[in-house]
């Protein structure tokens, strides 16, 4: 069972309290009604699923209830960092430097 740091609760909590919610940083177009089929396809259906660092959404559903974002390595399963919803993608090199 993973330990996941909730950026709102400011501590690591057991994975059971969380639920994954797919890829992060995919903004719903504000003019969604007007976008083309291709744009809708890219927004709604297409996902990267990389081997290595991925940015993904989690929700602390059985804790504070907040959605937040995480950078995680899909090979090692390790979280590199977590950050609040709405914040920009962090500079991972800087994060790794701090941890080292």
């Amino acid at each position: 069972m993973l330990l996941i740091r909730c950026p709102y609760c400011e501590e690591e909590r057991p994975e059971l309290e969380f639920r994954g919610a797919g890829e992060a940083h995919i903004a719903r177009p504000t003019n969604i009604a007007e976008i083309s089929d291709e744009e809708f396809e890219a927004f709604f259906f297409l996902r990267d699923n990389p081997r290595g660092v991925t940015f993904e959404r989690w929700r602390h559903i059985h804790g504070c209830g907040r959605f937040f974002n995480a950078a995680r390595d899909t090979v090692s399963d390790k979280f590199i960092t977590t950050y609040k919803a709405g914040e920009p993608k962090p500079d991972l090199d800087a994060v790794r430097g701090e941890k080292a």
Partner: peptide, 19 residues
């Protein structure tokens, strides 16, 4: 409950939603 309930992480007066 998988939450760490030791006083160091769950002191008197603390509250949390968990499972």
């Amino acid at each position: 409950c998988p939450h760490d309930l030791r006083l160091t992480s769950f002191p008197v007066g603390a509250a949390a939603r968990t499972l």
